Simulated scan of single mutants.
Amino acid sequence: MNEDKYNGWNDDGSFPPIEKCPFCSGSAKLCDNGYERPVIDPDTGAYIDMEISEGDTFWCECESCGATTHGKGSPEAAITEWNHRV
């Protein structure tokens, strides 16, 4: 199981737990469209910085079967949609 199922977004412990996948009972994680990538000096090839982009679209994804929610505007909305069971 992924120990950081919130991918760093639950630093203050305020998010609800992410339920198991409704299709396969696998573990799910919170995902976003943010990224981190190194900035490399083109002349020397040396690492000089890190470019970081905060995500603005969030979804939950099963680590076993790949089931996902639709993209939402907040981590809480993505978790709420994932945890909704009919």
Rank of each mutant, 00 (worst) to 15 (best):
H70C: 03
I18T: 06
K20Q: 08
C21T: 03
I18R: 09
P17A: 07
T44Q: 07
P17G: 07
A67M: 14
F58R: 01
P75L: 06
A28S: 08
E63I: 05
G45C: 13
K20M: 10
I18V: 02
Y6D: 03
L30P: 04
E76K: 11
S25L: 14
A77S: 15
E76R: 04
A77L: 11
E54R: 13
T80K: 13
I18G: 06
I79P: 01
E63K: 06
G66A: 04
S74T: 09
R85M: 04
S64Y: 01
T57P: 13
I79S: 00
E54I: 05
C65D: 00
E54G: 10
P22C: 03
D11Y: 13
K5P: 15
V39H: 15
I18S: 07
F15A: 07
K29M: 09
P22E: 03
K29I: 07
N10Q: 03
A46Q: 11
D4L: 06
T68F: 07
N83T: 04
E36R: 05
C65Y: 00
I48P: 09
S25Y: 01
D41A: 07
F15L: 15
S27W: 05
C31W: 08
P17R: 11
A78E: 00
G55E: 00
M1D: 08
F58C: 00
C62G: 11
P42D: 08
C21V: 01
A28F: 02
C31Q: 05
C24Q: 09
D11G: 12
D43P: 03
C24N: 08
W9A: 04
I48C: 06
S25C: 02
S14Y: 06
C65I: 00
D4A: 06
F15D: 02
K72C: 12
G26T: 00
R37Q: 14
E54N: 14
I48L: 15
K72E: 05
T44C: 04
Y35C: 11
H84D: 12
P38W: 03
D43Y: 12
P75I: 00
Y35E: 07
E61V: 00
W59M: 09
G73N: 03
Y47F: 12
A67K: 14
F15E: 06
I18L: 01
G34D: 01
N33S: 03
N10T: 11
E76C: 09
V39Y: 12
C62H: 03
G73W: 01
L30E: 15
D12N: 15
I18H: 06
H70K: 15
A77K: 11
M1T: 10
I79T: 05
M50S: 11
A78Y: 03
G8F: 07
Y6S: 10
K72M: 13
G8A: 04
N2E: 09
E61T: 03
E54L: 08
N83L: 01
P16L: 12
S74W: 05
N10Y: 02
N7Q: 14
N33Y: 05
E36S: 13
E61H: 00
K29Y: 02
S14T: 05
A46F: 12
